[in-house]
Design a protein around this nucleic acid. Structure first.
Ligand SMILES: [Mn+2]
Ligand SMILES: [Mn+2]
Ligand SMILES: [Zn+2]
Ligand SMILES: [Zn+2]
Lengths: 138, 138
DNA sequence: GCCAGTCTTAGAACTAGTCTAAGTATTGAG
DNA sequence: CTCAATACTTAGACTAGTTCTAAGACTGGC
């Protein structure tokens, strides 16, 4: 994620403390946090950060293509730093955990039948099921 | 959709004018209306119907498995009467039109790689691209 | 150090949806 | 047919998630 901060600076962005902590909080694998979760965690590193700045920064990162917006249900959008490797999502129907699974030619194939003349530019797959933990508890 | 009303009555449901118009409005192919759109159209048939009743009825139809909730973006959920044939969605990135494409063994295959121990029970695919109209205008 | 432009902020506003409490309609027992 | 029990509908209050606004704070270039 440190190279993310580099890239941002290269685009003429001010590297403020607020942007730094938002990027920091999004660091890692299988990270899919809501804006509120990002705000809460960023607030642990920089207590005075505002909700508006978190939304602004997330929006900017999305616009830059550095972070993806994921909405697997009708609830809060989740912010996903894994924008460099095309992937799909495994979602636990019980605890809502989300894991990344890599995309490939197989998963990204267009539908076999009639596409109604659409020019398809992206395929997004959500695999729903029970995660190992929730299987054990069931 | 008339057999839907039959099925509802069989489950001990009162066949009210409100439920009738909500079911009526959802009739058709490639229908993916928001709750507000359902309310607006239902209101043309039964002016005094309330938003709460529309939400209640839609929730009941979803619970019965007669209607699907679809959320392809972070916006309002859409209600889809095509619950009897498993299908996926083509979504226009420009005008947000949604079309149904049938699911089959190919599209519903689990991911090729590691599934992190998930027991997958459902696969949901969103194909994004430009619809024919929006291609023409571009 | 000054200033213009950029960034951050609190809070208002907005969208989508849920909840509540009171009123209305339907049903089935008598 | 009548009436109470129950199911259903309603307006509007409330909530969650998000965006907008207007004012103040910070930066970097001169
Ligand atoms: Mn992801
Ligand atoms: Mn559909
Ligand atoms: Zn789980
Ligand atoms: Zn279109």
């Amino acid at each position: 994620m440190s190279d993310l901060l580099e890239r941002l600076r290269d685009r003429g962005w001010r590297l403020t403390a607020q942007r730094r902590v938002v990027a920091e909080v999004l660091n890692g694998d299988h990270v899919h946090l809501t804006a509120d979760e990002v705000h809460e965690r960023a607030g642990r590193l920089l207590p005075e950060i505002s909700r508006a700045t978190v939304y602004n920064t997330l929006g900017e990162l999305v616009a830059l293509g550095e972070v993806l917006e994921v909405s697997t249900d009708g609830r809060a959008k989740r912010y996903d730093p894994n924008a460099r490797h095309r992937h799909h999502h495994l979602v636990c129907t019980n605890c809502r955990t989300i894991r990344d699974v890599p995309a490939d030619e197989t998963t990204d194939a267009p539908p076999s039948g009639d596409c109604f003349g659409f020019r398809i530019s992206d395929v997004e797959i959500t695999y729903r099921g029970l995660c190992p933990d929730c299987q054990a508890k069931a």
